[in-house]
Computed example of a mutant assay.
Amino acid sequence: MRETVGQRVLQYGLGILWLLDGLLQSQPLMFTTDFYALYPPNIMESLLQSATDGQPAWLAHLMELGIRMWAYAPVLFNIGAVVLQVAIGLCLLIGRSRKFIRAGLWVSIIWGIVIWIFGEGLGGLLADSPNYWDGFPGAAALYVIGAIFLLLPDKHWHSGLAARILQAGMGMYWLAMSIFQALPSSGYWNSDALATQMANAASLPQPHFLSAPIESFVYLTGDQPVLWNAILTLVLLLLAAVYLSGGFSRGVLWLSMLWLFWSWWFGQDFGGIFSGMGTDFNSIPVLALFTLAAWNVDGGTAAAKPAVLKIRFR
């Protein structure tokens, strides 16, 4: 049975992301102890150490144990991570047999769980205020979810069941993010939290034409935090309502992708890939894949009208 468009989009998309993650993991800084140090000597805080902030004590200790183990032999462990992630990507991109692809998916699930626990601290699930902008629930967790969907029998994709679950799951996700955005404990209603969130993205090393618009938006959110947080919360609520109601039209698809691109740029700074310290593209590209995987290129949802991809990689 041929794969549907949704399966192909998700498979090749995850394959490309895993391959690029492997290349990001091969950046020079990743092979040094500075990146993994618990108390780095420079002003740039370790990304892994920052992930322990706000975590429960047991999880922070577990993550710090992993950091110490990795820092003991950073070159060896990092080479292993690069090879593993590139191998997963190649399995998904050029795998000739279904068994070969499934093997890559199972390895990606195991490795994704390891990253989610030790590198992402459960994606902020147990932190003080998990939120969309920090990448909740973590890119690694979304990779795992994507792999699970690809392991579903083909009949669930052709019947539209997988697409319906994806759409409903995205709707629940947007609803949860709108709640987190609106909670007073998030701090986004005051003049500091929302502006600081965007300012952190603007402060990372990157071309000026990318950081300048973010800096302008920082001033807007600092002056009118209530207005802008209300707008952002409303956008998230509208997305939730549309996805949960089944009104996933072509216009919604394009607006969703526009929103994802904007928030990936202004909120996550493209995963920090220009900083030399980014190890993945953060959560939003995977959310974009989920959105596309639930869509039929013929003009409807895959749930309503399954389609197959006729162009195959040679």
Rank of each mutant, 00 (worst) to 15 (best):
R2M: 13
T4P: 11
V5Y: 07
L17P: 04
L19W: 08
Q27F: 07
T33N: 07
E45P: 08
Q49G: 06
Q49E: 13
S50F: 09
T52I: 12
P56R: 08
L62Q: 02
L62R: 03
Y72K: 02
V75P: 01
N78C: 07
V83D: 00
Q85Y: 10
A87I: 01
G95S: 08
F100K: 07
F100W: 14
A103Y: 01
I109N: 04
G112V: 00
V114F: 15
I115V: 14
F118N: 06
S129C: 01
P130T: 04
D134M: 14
D134V: 11
F136D: 09
L142I: 07
F149Y: 10
H156R: 14
A163S: 12
I165E: 12
M172S: 08
W174L: 10
I179P: 02
F180D: 10
Y188T: 03
D192H: 15
A199I: 00
L204S: 08
Y219A: 09
T221V: 12
A230R: 02
A241R: 11
V242K: 09
Y243H: 13
V252N: 08
L255T: 14
F261V: 09
W264M: 08
W265K: 04
F270Q: 09
G278R: 03
F281D: 11
F290R: 01
F290A: 01
T291Q: 04
A294F: 06
W295Y: 11
N296L: 01
G299A: 12
K305F: 00
